[in-house]
Nucleic acid binder design. Structure first.
Lengths: 340, 340
DNA sequence: CTGAAAGCGCTTACAG
DNA sequence: CTGAAAGCGCTTACAG
């Protein structure tokens, strides 16, 4: 019963059949009589046999391994936004459902992606901003199935799961407008054309325009997407004479930092300034005041990515290439009509 | 230059040597003349050769893959505490440094762990509470290196990285005592003997005892470790006549829910009730009021786990089996002397 | 210092 | 329905 090094040979011997037959039973391939099948299954059970993935991979080039590729921060560590955890949770759950294993990989700017071939990865999920770099292109040329999440790729031939970011920017802004705000600042991460923030910014502009409120570039604050970034922005925004009455922060993480920063400056949310976030991660609900935000279903996003990946693995010709997930405004306590 | 299916044979042919020699160059084994080595390296570069991990694993039983094993929630999804993300970040970073890849696995109560043998995993890091179950025992008997984090295992032969939880419970409580609090509630997750919460609870008791404050079991609130658990506890704690003036919550997640719950009941922190958390995750600093908490370095915890794992992989006889990480009180604004 | 050959544990035509 | 055999891409004694 020492399960250490049981191979298909041991099973074959015990069941008194050939290894080919054992293989057929395991994979449900070929034709095997019920009786033989039973014998083999019994032997497998008795020996507690687990087929070697490496031998299998060596033969058929399928590893059942997919990678979640996360950009590294400067210090060589994975992104710190807990957002990623929820994404990964969704991915792991779905992958488990289709017998894929998830390997987590942080990559820097100089990545060679040799691990993809080394490990015979079946597919890749790129999480976060990835432009169409040369490596990625060559990846696609190699035929390794890829799915991009929240990336900057325009190319409709890429598989990607994105959010309706433009709409998100729109409804968040609209909410503030409908409360009566006009001087609405936008607190965003880097604005790269085609990027997530860029789309949200477009939605922001559309809402303003529709409402007949002039767009003022000086109300757009570009800060790192981190709590600290939000915190720091508070002083810049608070110092603004001319009265910003509301801020739309493009992530809950920055929104939370912002609220804290405003609070430390003696500026009360929502009395003096209203704040809208983006994501609706768990923190939003428990903030004081509870954060009004634009909700996205992050776990679902991860699930969808796996679906797009498996569609490729199964060469499903009907598979959609681009799935856009919805957004939803969640009004809570951090927004109110302007005081004056 | 099609990098698709380049094997060691192609390299050998191009470099005009045998595949054995190529293998030796790659692995730095055997004796190879400088000239030959250079030829081979050039060929590898030209062909952009990446050795097949599966072939290698098949031969030498080392996959360079380790698994982070996370318990599943009921819905079949990974734990939702973002705490895990930071752990995983630390693990991924260190693993990358020693050329190991990290696979993420959620397991339910009926797990068979067959994936360990299937994938020839080199090691396992168990994250969260794992008792010494039969599977785990058999895992250890198989000789698969394991490291336990925050687990309930007493056995000194297990490799584990733990926190000085008793001390954490002690200093958190002590802090409140020194501010003048006496009716200090403890908000904890499940109290299992030997578990993380249990140790912290012991520290809590020690601090009380030292201060000559009687321990009152009715002040110990056992709630799920979640923001919602904390939120719900608020009403039970707030309703308490007899005046609880401080609460020590054994995770920031519950502390945050608690503060919110108290706030919704019109109970002000720290004016009416002081609150101490545990973990010091990023949220703590940005809470309103900023949360006083017991800090642990979660990323470092992950790093340490990998160190213990590699020590086993290298059969380092001097390796410590149990590393205890320190804790530190971080006083912020959620604690103050009792109002009366 | 270098190479021929066996073998790791599977799967897959191909015979029978 | 079942089995013998080749082969996936490496590593590792073993000769030379």
């Amino acid at each position: 019963m020492s399960a250490s090094r049981v191979t298909i040979k041991d099973v074959a011997k015990l069941a008194q059949v050939s290894i080919a037959t054992v293989s057929n039973v395991i994979n449900g391939t070929g034709r095997v009589s019920t009786e033989t099948r039973r014998k083999v299954e019994r032997a497998i059970g008795q020996l507690d046999f687990a087929p070697s993935a490496s031998a299998r991979t060596l033969k058929d080039k399928q590893s059942s391994l997919i990678a979640v590729v996360v950009p590294l921060l400067e210090k060589g560590r994975l992104q710190d936004n807990p957002f990623y955890w929820h994404l990964v949770r969704g991915i792991e759950e779905s992958a488990r459902g289709v017998k894929l294993h998830v390997i987590l990989i942080g990559i820097g700017p100089d990545e060679t992606f040799s691990f993809v071939r080394e490990q015979h990865l079946d597919g890749l999920i790129f999480v976060g901003a990835f432009a169409r770099t040369e490596v990625v292109e060559s990846m696609l040329r190699l035929g390794v199935p890829c799915v991009f999440m929240d990336s900057l790729v325009d190319d409709p031939s890429y598989y990607q799961v994105v959010l309706d970011d433009e709409l998100g920017g729109y409804i968040g802004t609209k909410h503030l407008l409908s409360l009566g705000h006009e001087r609405i600042a936008l607190l965003t991460g880097v604005l790269l054309e085609g990027g997530v923030n860029y789309c949200r910014w477009q939605g922001y502009r559309r809402a303003l325009e529709e409402a007949g409120v002039p767009y003022r570039p000086e109300l757009v604050y570009e800060e790192p997407t981190s709590s600290l970034g939000g915190y720091r922005a508070a002083s810049r925004i608070g110092a603004k004479t001319g009265g910003i009455t509301a801020v739309f922060a493009l992530s809950d993480m920055t929104a939370i930092g912002l609220v804290k920063g405003l609070h430390d400056l003696g500026i009360s949310v929502p009395r003096d300034i209203s704040v809208v976030g983006f994501d609706d991660d768990e923190r939003a609900r428990y903030c004081i005041p509870a954060l009004t935000t634009v909700r996205q279903d992050i776990v679902e996003k991860g699930r969808t990515a796996v679906r797009l990946l498996t569609a490729q693995l199964e060469r499903d010709p009907l598979a959609e290439r681009r799935v856009t997930l919805g957004v939803e405004l969640v009004p809570r306590q951090s927004t109110a009509p302007p005081s004056r």
